[in-house]
């Protein structure tokens, strides 16, 4: 579903990604962990070209994003993204947030789009909040609307960029639960997170990144149970201690 070949990204003189290779199979849930500043988010943002890589190739569902002939807008329709800070449109209600892209990009009628939106709102447990504005919702509710908004485009892949990092602790669970359901339904997902419990329970594969490289990868049992890399051991001892 996603293929990444020798991906490099540089901000000026700072090398953020130094040659990433990876493959994400359909229906697979890949979780990326690593210390902050390791390039996890940049890597994720390169997968839909919100960040343009300096070199290397990204292929999504057989389409190379690096190819100048590729219509990035078309590719992005198939790749949903959820952000750390939700990024809901504050001037629109939850419902309007969800139906905007299906109507304007996919060309659905308002009725069709609303049908999808209401079923997604039900799915994330927010049927009663359809007409609420983002600032009337809690962080956890906003993030669930953001997930519904991304799903409304019926994407083939979902990218999550630290979706629970900006939430109060008591709201983390509700968002993770929605993501867990999504994984169970077979959605292909790439998740950058600090939630080790989620990585262990839901991830099919865990990638450990540090200083712009993938230093270790494998099933969560192995990565957490029997870490090979020195830095991964140090990282795990830091995050699991607390």
């Amino acid at each position: 579903m996603i293929e990444v070949k020798n991906l490099c990204k540089r901000f000026g003189r700072l090398e953020v990604l130094r040659g990433i290779n990876c493959y994400v199979a359909p229906r697979e849930v890949v979780v990326i962990i690593g210390p902050s500043g390791s390039g996890k988010s940049t890597f994720l943002r390169c997968l839909n070209f919100l960040e343009r890589p300096t070199s290397g190739e990204v292929i999504i569902d057989g389409v190379s994003l690096t190819d100048p002939k590729t219509d990035l807008n078309k590719v992005r329709q198939e790749v949903g993204m959820v952000f750390q800070r939700f990024n809901l449109f504050p001037h629109k209600t939850a419902l309007e947030n969800i139906i905007l892209a299906p109507m304007k990009v996919r060309g659905l009628s308002r009725k069709q789009a609303e049908e999808i939106a209401y079923s997604l709102l039900a799915k994330v447990g927010l049927s009663d909040k359809a007409h609420a504005y983002p600032d009337q919702l809690s962080g956890g509710q906003q993030q669930r609307v953001a997930i519904a908004r991304a799903l409304a485009m019926r994407p083939k892949v979902m990218l999550f960029d630290e979706p629970t990092s900006a939430l109060d602790p008591e709201m983390v669970g509700e968002v993770l639960a929605v993501m867990k359901d999504l994984a169970k339904e077979g959605m292909t997902m790439v998740v950058v997170t600090h939630e080790m419990g989620f990585a262990r329970e839901v991830g099919d594969r865990v990638l450990f990144m540090d200083e712009g490289r993938i230093l270790e990868e494998g099933p969560p049992g192995e990565v957490f149970g029997n870490p090979q890399n020195e830095r991964l051991r140090a990282f795990l001892s830091r995050v699991l201690k607390v």
Partner: peptide, 22 residues
């Protein structure tokens, strides 16, 4: 906020659509 443009683009909107609607 920059995140508004990013969210709109991530949904497949063109730059023009993102400007106009978001």
């Amino acid at each position: 906020d920059k995140g508004q443009m990013e969210a709109a683009r991530s949904l497949g909107m063109t730059h023009g659509q993102a400007m106009r609607y978001v």
